[in-house]
Each structure stands twice: as C-alpha cells, then as structure tokens.
Design a binder for these strands. Sequence first.
DNA 1: GTCTATACCCTGATAGAC
DNA 2: GTCTATCAGGGTATAGAC
Lengths: 197, 197
Amino acid sequence: MARKTGSHSDITGPKVRRAAQRLFARHGYAAVSMRRIAAEVGVQAGALYLYTPDKQTLLFDLMRDHLLEVLEAWHAEAAPGGPAERLAALARFHVRFHLERPEEVFIAYMELRSLAPGNFAAIEALRRRYEQEFVAILEEGLAAGAFRLPDVRLAAMAVIAMLTGVTTWYREGGRLSRAEVAQIHADMALRMVQGGG
Amino acid sequence: MARKTGSHSDITGPKVRRAAQRLFARHGYAAVSMRRIAAEVGVQAGALYLYTPDKQTLLFDLMRDHLLEVLEAWHAEAAPGGPAERLAALARFHVRFHLERPEEVFIAYMELRSLAPGNFAAIEALRRRYEQEFVAILEEGLAAGAFRLPDVRLAAMAVIAMLTGVTTWYREGGRLSRAEVAQIHADMALRMVQGGG
DNA sequence: GTCTATACCCTGATAGAC
DNA sequence: GTCTATCAGGGTATAGAC
C-alpha cells in the first residue's frame, strides 16, 4: 500500500540500489560517483546517505544479495536425479539465471577487486558455495563412473566459465532464444565431462 | 647499449607502461591515478605526459599491443592439419598464452568499458579477428563432418570462454603445470564440439 | 628529461536548515 | 526526507624553471 505523503524511504531506497546497479554494471564501480547515482535517482548526493552508510556498502549489498538469490533460486529448483541430469539442470539454470540478470552478474564478476578486504572474503565465501554445487555433482558422477575427469575442480571451473560466457555476447532478440541457448550449453557441459579423459 | 647520462626516455617509457599494466590489472583503470603510476615509476605525475598523451591512450596502447601480440604469436605457431588437430592446437596455445600474461589478459577482458568509443571500436575489431580463428576452424570441421554444432558462433564463444576461464583460478605452483592445464582444456574443447548435437 | 607548482574540477562524506 | 553548503583531499593535465 503506497503512502501518499511524507516518507519516500520505501521507494527511494530501491531506486538507489537500482541506479547503482545499472551504473556500476555499465561503467564500473570506481568510475561512478555518488553524485551521478543521485542524479539518476533524482535526489541530491547527500540524500543517498540515508539509504547506505557509504558507497562501498552499496556495492557489497548488491553483490551479496545477488549471490544469495542465485543460491536460493537453485535450491528451490534443484531436483533429484542422476549426475548427468542434475548437471544439465544446473547448467540450464545457470545460463537462464545469468541471462535474466545481466547487470547483477556483470558486477559480481567484475567488481571483486573493488571490495574492501572483509567484504571480499564474504563474497568469495558465497561464490565458493555456488561453485561447490558444480563440484559436488561432478564428484558424484565421477564416483558413479558417469563422468571422466582428470581433475574435478578444474572441470567445475571450466564448466562455469563456459556457461557464464554467454553474458558477454548474448543479446535479446537474436537468432536464439534464452531457452535454446541454455539447452545448447547444457549439452556442451555434459559432453565436456562425459567423454574420455 | 645503455647510455650513461642524459635521456632516460628509452628506459622510463617502458617502465611507465609496465607500471600502468600492473596497476590497471590489479585495481582497474578507473581506480588508478596518474599520480600512483608516477609513484610506481619513481617520477612526478607531470613527467608521465612525456611518454603518453593521456591516461586513455596508455590503456588503449596496452590493449592493442596485447591483441596484436596474440594474433602474431598464433600465426607464427599455427600449423596445418585437420580441424580437430588445429582446434586442439589453438586451445593449447590460448591457455598457455593467457597463463603466461595474466595482467595483459585481465586488462583486455575487463577494461573494454573504460575505452573511449573510437578506441573501443578498434579493440573490438582486433578481438573479432582472433575469435574468427576459432570460428574458421569450427566451420571447417562442421563442413567436413568432424564436428557437430547447432551454432558455430555460439560454440566458438563457449570454447573461448571456457579456455579463458583458467585465468580466474590458476595459480603458479599449484597441483597442475601450465602444460597439463592446457592439454586438459584442449581435450574438453574437442569434446564440446565433437559429440552429438 | 624531469622537476615543482599550479589550474581547475570532481570526489566521498558531513552539518545543519527546512 | 531532502536540500544547500561545505570540507579536505585527490583527479587529470599543463606551464615554466632548471
């Protein structure tokens, strides 16, 4: 229920986050000033500090919330099945999710070095948790003889890099739909780990 | 032959480039000031402008020279052979080259958005030329029936993303040598494009 | 070739009026 | 809740001495 007068805290807060997200994704954290974010929102620079203690926290919150959202979305969607089925499902999920949120993804991958040390550690821990989803499936498939891999962690990183790569070239309205792209990538991920090794 | 007095132009110039490369790779273009580059070199900020017209050109030159070097190195190494052999060779080359030059690679991938429009177009053209090396091999293999791909350009981008991913996790002195990592990635690249499609 | 000094603008963040 | 005004510091780039 929208209030009619007084506080805009519940409106301006999200607007600040969205503006920061768009600008950080497009120009990079270091290249974006608080004044520019404020201009995008339609307030003065000082007003931003009602919604975030500082610029660094703005970045950290965006990255943390994105990673928590990825983990939550995957846990909500993950279904039982053999390693091959589960890897294909995770690959499709990863591509779909990343294509639906290009800005969050871009920030999460590009701005790690803009994080203060403590924040960096927290984000890295979340990233590891997500990578572990891939590692676990690969280990299971390896033990079951379904996959052949010389090195599980290397394969996990290679699969993730391949899947994440879509964000660098995919454009809405191209030859292929997001679902088609997701399916093709899931097939490639499976072939990467199923062949001889 | 090092001169003993007077001009240091032939020494300081490369030092400026190397300092910029290290700092841009580590902290990002926008986060690095000319003063900091100068401090790294051991001169005052104003002196940098003897070696570059401005900061933007410093970045552009680093990226252009890196990409020209990649193209030249591959053309010097590329050997005749079937599509599978040539893809494997290109994959090994790509991984090896990228692991040997982590800073240049990092800048080339991360700082595209820091380029002025004209410079961006020039760098993009060079990147396309390199991507085209992959596309050409995949098209040849598809025509020869050696590869099965639903979409050549998508596969090329996926292979490149997978191969380039090594730079995000590989650390010197780990379990695997660079040559081992390159070989494993070449195998994965082949499997990605050879299976059913 | 490098220095100091400086022009001029933008930065993140805060204080206090309204 | 937002504004204006402001702070101290740092940004790129240039001018002119040596």
